[in-house]
């Protein structure tokens, strides 16, 4: 689950090029692993460091939601309707629990519901991102490697798909497919794969002309091996950057669709659904039911985007010395 945002994933292909380093730096580089250099570059920005720590906390909460939540919001034995719509900081009817962020219309603890909601939202976002990455990068690699008609056909499809806004494509699909976790993942994969395909193709076209691919071809290695063992690792840096940004937008899109009642079913409450549930109480100024899940969503999206921005700067070879 953490692999999309894990900076170590960028590490294998970043071998320092000795020709680029001067004599003094060469000595220092000898003690530096590529991973350490990557970390030093990444944590040079305080904003990105904070975002990374926040993101780690969010991931921790999402993975361990059942253990870190004060109450289980979906255990009917624990939830008491007498506690419904309590403002933040109030104690429960029987005095046993403090609801730091208040309770919703059914008497559930908003904080616990947010923790469980983060779990669902991140799962949907990351799962769809990974599947789209797999499909998109395979298609992009094939397109770049074979070129010609295959390439122009695939890229025409990508162009046409990208000319429709993501939300529209997802709406069309979900209106036809209906609700469900697997359905929204399918919709998000369809929306995202084209971005990965285009990114990988662009990088792979440059990489394909390099000597190591020529050498591999001369050794008569099978195409599949050249594609996945030689080309793909070298296309990773831009892929990781696109991956983080796409995951953030997938989470936002899922929240929007769930808010509209088209995404997840009521049994799998993501952040978007929590916000939708609180909407009706907003008119009577019971703001906390909608506002806090929204802030959680905002923090998640902003921290992923900030980490992604920093990854782009660090992984961009043009910005390195």
């Amino acid at each position: 689950m953490t692999s999309v945002t894990d900076p170590t994933a960028a590490q294998p292909q970043k071998v320092p090029d000795p020709a680029l380093l001067d004599a003094g730096a060469e000595e220092r580089a000898a003690q530096q692993t590529p991973f350490r250099r990557f970390c030093r570059d990444f944590f040079a920005s305080p904003v990105a460091s904070v975002a990374f720590v926040v993101l780690c906390c969010i991931l921790f909460i999402a993975v361990f939601a059942p253990w870190v939540s004060p109450t289980d919001p979906y255990d009917l034995a624990v939830v008491d309707v007498m506690d419904n719509r309590l403002p933040p900081g109030s104690t429960s009817f029987d005095g046993s629990v403090t609801y730091w962020l208040g309770t919703d219309g059914a008497g559930r603890d908003v904080l616990s519901a947010i923790f469980y909601g983060l779990r669902t939202s991140l799962f949907v976002g990351v799962a769809s991102g990974l599947i789209a990455l797999l499909i998109g990068s395979s298609v992009g690699l094939v397109s770049a490697y074979y070129g010609g008609r295959v390439d122009s056909l695939i890229m025409r499809i990508v162009d046409i798909q990208l000319s429709f806004p993501a939300i529209l494509v997802a709406l069309i699909l979900l209106a036809a497919l209906g609700q469900g976790v697997e359905k929204i993942i399918v919709a998000l994969v369809v929306v995202q794969w084209a971005y990965y395909a285009r990114t990988v193709r662009g990088t792979a076209l440059v990489e394909r002309r390099k000597e190591y691919v020529e050498a591999a071809t001369c050794l008569a290695l099978p195409s599949r091996r050249i594609l996945f063992r030689h080309l793909l690792p070298n296309c990773l840096p831009p892929l990781i950057v696109v991956g983080t940004v796409q995951t953030a937008s997938a989470i936002a899109l899922e929240a929007t669709l769930s808010f509209l009642g088209l995404g997840l079913p009521i049994t799998e409450p993501s952040l978007g659904l929590l916000i939708a549930n609180g909407f009706q109480y907003m008119m009577s100024l019971q703001y906390w039911i909608s506002v806090f899940p929204g802030i959680a969503l905002l923090i998640t999206i902003v921290s992923i985007n900030l980490v992604g921005d920093q990854l782009r700067d660090v992984l961009n070879p043009r910005l390195q010395q």
């Binding site: 907003m282 506002v291 929204g294 969503l297 905002l298």
Partner: peptide
């Protein structure tokens, strides 16, 4: 860019 549009809409209404 980062704020989810629907949530901003709710905040505007509120």
């Amino acid at each position: 860019f980062s704020l989810p549009t629907f949530w901003v809409g709710l905040m505007l209404i509120m």
